[in-house]
């Protein structure tokens, strides 16, 4: 199955220590292949969000290696980080905090394209350099009416804001999007819509996802492979079909038990 060159993200023995010497991420290795969604399940304190921030180069790492499309993220100085930035995007848990309340939606939405002008996403090729048209097309892709472009964030609901953020994440056609609890703060019905949207976009655009959540059912719905994290370490990993196998780690079984109750 694994073909070299298909690996979008490779993490080797990644460790990140906090000031107190406590290891937030401990010797984590994983790969994300092209077009795949890798799920990471863990409770709070499992290090899953710290891992996400390391992968986004928002935190320095202590040990290990992160390769994005075979380019290392961390011997990179600021300049060589730039091309890597065009390959990776993120969607966080709290949609309100992810949009600057003082900026109109269109300005937040177009931030990646405004600041990385060299990028030309395939689905925006025919209208490049037409900012409003590109924004409208992105909104169409995530199912938002274009009138919201001139609104401020506080005029939108949580689900709508999360759609804006997803539109922003796909706008540069990245190779990988890190989804850190993207639906945790939304209502059940909105959660379903957002998860469906993410799946649709993945199929249409062939983007890889790293889906991080404490909700095993959501991870199971989204991902082909699942990693279970506990106290900074990977305790279990399997393909979606093996989730109920007897060989699973006891912790995974506990989690399954909770979600099946």
């Amino acid at each position: 199955m694994r073909v070299v060159g298909q690996e979008i993200l490779t993490v080797k023995n990644l460790s990140k220590e906090y000031v107190c010497g406590h290891k937030a991420v401990d010797q984590v290795s994983l790969t994300v292949n092209k077009g795949e969604c890798l799920g990471i399940v863990g409770e709070s304190g499992s290090g899953k969000s710290t891992l996400a921030r390391c992968l986004l180069a928002l935190e320095k790492i202590d040990e290990g290696e992160i390769l994005l499309k075979e380019k290392s993220l961390y011997n990179a100085n600021k300049k060589s980080l730039h091309p890597v930035r065009s390959e990776i995007q993120a969607v966080f848990q709290n949609p309100s905090a992810s949009l600057n309340p003082k900026l109109k939606i269109i300005d937040s939405l177009m931030e990646p394209l405004d600041f990385q002008r060299k990028i030309q996403p395939s689905f925006l090729m025919d209208i490049r350099n037409q900012r409003t048209k590109m924004a409208e097309r992105l909104f169409e892709m995530v199912g938002l009416p274009s009138k919201y472009l001139s609104y401020y964030p506080h005029e939108l609901s949580g689900g709508q804001k999360q759609r804006v953020i997803i539109a922003r994440a796909i706008s540069i056609e990245p190779a990988l999007i890190i989804l850190d609890e993207p639906t945790a703060s939304l209502d059940v019905s909105i959660q379903a819509k957002i998860l469906n949207l993410l799946k649709d976009l993945q199929e249409d655009l062939g983007i890889s996802y790293l889906f991080i959540s404490h909700d095993l059912a959501a991870v199971n719905f989204m991902s082909q492979r699942i990693i279970v994290m506990k106290q900074g370490q990977i305790v279990d990993q399997c393909s979606k079909h093996d989730l109920f196998s007897d060989r699973r780690h006891p912790y995974t079984k506990d989690l399954l038990h909770v979600f099946e109750a």
Partner: peptide
């Protein structure tokens, strides 16, 4: 706030982040 993380992910320089996000 996350939008600052986002701006960093989007490759904005510190100067641009200050100008665009902080000054308003």
């Amino acid at each position: 706030k996350d939008y600052i993380s986002m701006a960093k992910i989007n490759g904005m320089s510190s100067l641009n982040i200050l100008r665009r996000h902080m000054i308003p």
